[in-house]
Amino acid sequence: MTEYKLVVVGAGGVGKSALTIQLIQNHFVDEYDPTIEDSYRKQVVIDGETCLLDILDTAGQEEYSAMRDQYMRTGEGFLCVFAINNTKSFEDIHHYREQIKRVKDSEDVPMVLVGNKCDLPSRTVDTKQAQDLARSYGIPFIETSAKTRQGVDDAFYTLVREIRKHKEKMSKDGKKKKKKSKTKCVIM
């Protein structure tokens, strides 16, 4: 069974824990209790493949930012979460993405942009803004509501699919490099 290491990042209060708990335990946590770091595991079937999701729910508070490099190193894919009623959390996505790329030393890291709290009427981040940002990053965008469960499975499952595509691409690139290195030079 394939294991996928997913990391949920975003500013404090955007609903990272609520999304994760909704996926794992099928219930909505409405009281806000700032996370330092929590880890969850769940076995699911995605596109006919049974897999184990190892999900790291991270601290959004700035005082825990020193811990970010460590979990970013171990993560295979990242859910970059903002709240649709919090423009600052949307603007912060850029910083999370840049930090992930720096730590992973790669421009090509599996990510999904997630606009959470889409059940709320007080939207300050337009869907088109988020779609445009995701398009500019070359990553999928999904709106979710941890409260109603809308888009929750889709967000995590899409990230797994992005990781699969990335692994497939990397193995193809690896095979191309191996083929090239088999060419021999004969000096007579």
Rank of each mutant, 00 (worst) to 15 (best):
I142P: 07
I84L: 13
Q25P: 00
Y96C: 15
N116E: 13
D105R: 06
E107P: 04
T158C: 12
Q43L: 05
D153L: 06
A134C: 14
D119Y: 05
T124G: 10
V103I: 14
Q22H: 09
D108E: 09
T127C: 08
G75T: 04
K178D: 10
A83L: 04
D154R: 05
I21P: 00
I55K: 00
G10E: 02
I55R: 00
I187W: 15
P110A: 05
A83S: 14
I21E: 13
Y96F: 13
G174A: 03
L133Y: 12
K42E: 04
L53H: 04
K42Y: 04
V14T: 13
V103M: 13
L120R: 15
K16N: 02
D69S: 08
V112A: 09
V81A: 06
L159V: 06
S39R: 15
K169E: 08
I21H: 02
D119P: 07
L79R: 01
A83I: 04
K178Y: 08
Y64M: 03
D132S: 05
E168V: 15
V14C: 09
Q131T: 07
N116H: 12
V45T: 14
V125I: 09
M111D: 01
G115M: 11
S145T: 15
G10Q: 14
A59H: 00
L113K: 02
S39P: 00
T50I: 13
Q43I: 06
F156L: 05
V29M: 07
C80N: 04
M111C: 07
L23S: 15
P34A: 07
V125Q: 12
Y40D: 00
T35Y: 00
K42Q: 10
A83N: 15
Q131A: 08
T35I: 00
T20W: 00
K167S: 06
S122E: 09
K177Q: 11
V109F: 11
L53Q: 07
K101P: 02
H166N: 05
G12T: 12
Y64P: 01
K176A: 15
Y64R: 02
E76H: 11
Q150H: 04
V9M: 11
H166F: 06
C118P: 11
Y157C: 11
T74K: 13
S39C: 15
K117E: 12
V109A: 10
I187T: 11
D69A: 05
T58S: 09
T158P: 08
L133V: 10
T2C: 09
V8Y: 01
I24D: 01
D47T: 10
Q131Y: 05
G13N: 11
E98I: 01
Y64W: 08
R149Y: 12
Q61N: 15
G174Y: 02
K184G: 11
V7K: 14
E31T: 14
S39I: 00
L56N: 01
E49K: 11
Q43R: 14
P34D: 00
S122D: 11
K165L: 13
G115Y: 11
R73K: 08
K169Q: 08
L79D: 01
K16V: 00
S106I: 10
T50C: 07
Y137Q: 09
S181W: 13
M188Y: 12
V45E: 13
Y40N: 00
M188V: 07
S39D: 04
S65G: 08
T87G: 06
A11R: 11
A11G: 09
K167H: 09
V152F: 10
G174E: 14
R123E: 10
T74Y: 11
E49D: 09
E162S: 06
D38N: 00
I21Y: 02
D47F: 14
K172D: 13
D33K: 02
L19C: 12
V7R: 14
A11S: 10
G10C: 06
K165F: 06
G15E: 01
V8S: 03
H95L: 11
G12M: 11
A11M: 12
V45Y: 06
L52E: 08
F78P: 02
I36N: 00
K167Q: 06
D108H: 11
D105A: 06
V7F: 03
R135D: 14
K88N: 13
L19E: 14
F141C: 08
M188P: 14
L52C: 13
Q43D: 09
V14P: 14
Q99L: 05
V45M: 14
K117A: 15
R102V: 05
R164C: 07
G15D: 01
R164F: 07
I55A: 14
D33P: 00
T158H: 13
N116S: 11
E31G: 13
Y40H: 00
D57N: 00
M72C: 07
S17Q: 01
L52G: 12
V103G: 10
R73S: 09
S106Q: 14
Y157D: 05
L133N: 15
E37Y: 05
I46F: 11
P110Y: 02
C118R: 11
Y4V: 13
K178L: 09
I100H: 06
L120A: 09
L19G: 13
T50K: 11
Q22D: 13
M111F: 10
K42H: 04
Q43N: 12
D119L: 11
K172Y: 07
L79S: 01
D30H: 15
G12A: 12
C80H: 08
P121G: 10
E168R: 08
K5Y: 02
T74H: 08
